[in-house]
Simulated assay, not measured.
Amino acid sequence: MHWQLSGEPEVPGEAPGASPKLQAIEDYNREDCESTALLHDWLLKFRREQGLPEQPLQLPLNDADQEPREPQQSELLSQQLLEEIPDHLADERALGPRGMSWQAHRLLAQLLPFHHREAKVGWWAYFDRRSKAELSPADLIDDGEAIAGAQWVGMDERPSARTGADIHHFRFDPSQPLKLHAGDGDGRLTVELPATDLKLDVDALDAERGTLSLQPQQ
């Protein structure tokens, strides 16, 4: 966002005619990817050393719609690891009985049920956006999956073979870093207006110009 508003070139670098801000973004993303890859390799190595199961987790997307289930093996192991940690540790960097520091021991215990928790993230993000839309809309300006501050500018009726459809037109700040696309057919984007709970289909979306057209769902 800061680079987009800076007016600097699209070439990263410190040399004249290049963008230091874009270079900083590139360096940050590279380090993030490299550290994630190193963590992935370490977890795979540790899984083999500890004899943990290699099959991927198959967890339900929404526990509320599921019958009570037996805990996953990873969840049981996570609880076991947490129970092994002494109540009072003088030094978390000291080695524990599993050949790793207590700090790594705790981290592993917290990571094991990660996929189960992440399955609910979509709904957490949805309700977080609804709350921000109602209480602090300005907080959505940097959210790439929400259109903040859209203002209604007019309406027209588009005739069709079956029925007419009212098309409502909006404008918004085009500096928002949107990741949304209108789509078409079954993949058409739907947006929700939090103040009314209305769900409308996106007829057209131009992020660069800051224009949005919505129509009632068919």
Rank of each mutant, 00 (worst) to 15 (best):
P177K: 06
S131Y: 15
I85N: 01
R98Y: 08
Q218R: 11
W124I: 14
E84H: 03
P159F: 06
G154A: 03
G164I: 05
E34P: 00
A119D: 02
D91W: 06
V202G: 10
L89E: 00
Q66V: 08
D197F: 06
K199E: 10
G96R: 00
A207N: 08
V153L: 02
Q55W: 07
A24V: 01
N29C: 11
Y126Q: 11
R162K: 14
A150Q: 04
H88V: 15
S6H: 03
L135N: 14
A204Q: 10
K21M: 13
L52G: 06
G17F: 09
V121W: 15
A90M: 11
G7D: 02
E67M: 13
T190M: 15
R48T: 13
M100S: 00
L77W: 15
P216S: 12
E134T: 05
G185K: 07
V121F: 13
V202F: 14
E118P: 01
R188E: 04
L214K: 04
R162W: 07
L89P: 05
S160F: 02
L59P: 00
L140A: 04
Q4N: 08
L43H: 07
L39H: 11
Q80K: 13
A182S: 11
K45W: 15
L82V: 01
E54T: 12
G13V: 07
H168A: 11
Q151I: 13
D206M: 05
L212E: 07
N62S: 15
S78F: 08
I85T: 00
R162I: 08
E157S: 14
E67I: 02
L82H: 15
L95G: 00
Q151V: 15
L180W: 08
H88L: 15
Q218M: 15
A90G: 14
L59Y: 12
Q215V: 14
D142A: 08
L108C: 06
L39I: 13
D201S: 11
V11I: 14
R47H: 13
C33T: 10
P53I: 05
F172G: 12
A18H: 14
G17A: 06
D142N: 12
E83K: 13
P194S: 02
I25P: 00
A207L: 02
P113H: 01
P12G: 03
H115C: 14
D143Q: 09
D201C: 10
E75F: 01
G7K: 04
D156A: 07
Q79H: 11
P216K: 08
